[in-house]
Amino acid sequence: MPARSRRKARAREELKDVIEACRAVEEGRTDPFAIPVEKLLEVVRDLFPLWEEPEDLSLDAEAVEAISGVIKAQSEWVRERSTRLYRDPFLVEEKLLKLEGDELAELFLRAWHPLVELEQLTPLALDTALRYWAELPERGPPEEAVEAPEEAIKAPGAEVEVEDIQEALEDLWRELREEARGGSVPYWDFITADTYSETVRRAYLTSFLITYGYAILGVDPLSEELVLRPRRRPRRRPREKATSVVIEVDYERWLRHAEEG
């Protein structure tokens, strides 16, 4: 490996370390003032002349953004201490550990004013429900179970081995990262392929990318389009709040996108 490439690889690692350190502040794992902001900015500035590729420039921008996050955290820290709600964390934690559960609960009850809310059917809701029910089309007699013909199941590409799925996911994730270049890609642009069946396959695999934490599905605030943002590392947190989103990949929409593309 030529010396310049080695230097670049080292520099990339340095930038990643800077981002990691700044993210720790954002996540509340590190005191914002433990980060030497000026020194980090100097590092980023010194490395900047090395960058030529868009990926590197994007990493550079990510580092600057992460450092600005630390500055924001520092300003919040200062603001927090100037507000009436600030109390010495050490004192609070010490007090918390000394208190028995019932004592703590009693103190809390003196500052707790629970919300009053009612969840019940109203005549209006009943009326709406009745109208909805009346307008529902009848389903007719139950249909006999229809088995899909074996040929359809065995169509080329329809059977996917478990290990193939993992490989396909990794490939798609790589593709997404390349397309996103540190940012995001419109969902429909990403899944749309030359054929409808391939588009459905990509949509199916993309849903796994999101569920397994390889990518985040969001909404672009300006265009209000669904966008995919790849993660640098897959993250799976079973306890985090998850939301299911149903996206219909219908033929007409695919045709429209394929023609636009």
Binding site: W77, E93, L96, L104, R239
Partner: peptide, 23 residues
């Protein structure tokens, strides 16, 4: 009462840590 104590402790702890703390 245990639930309330746990809620009180969590809220106080988050306040002491500036509003955010790792779970």
């Amino acid at each position: 009462i245990d639930d309330i104590a746990a809620l009180a402790l969590s809220i106080a702890l988050l306040l002491a840590r500036g509003g955010r703390a790792p779970r």
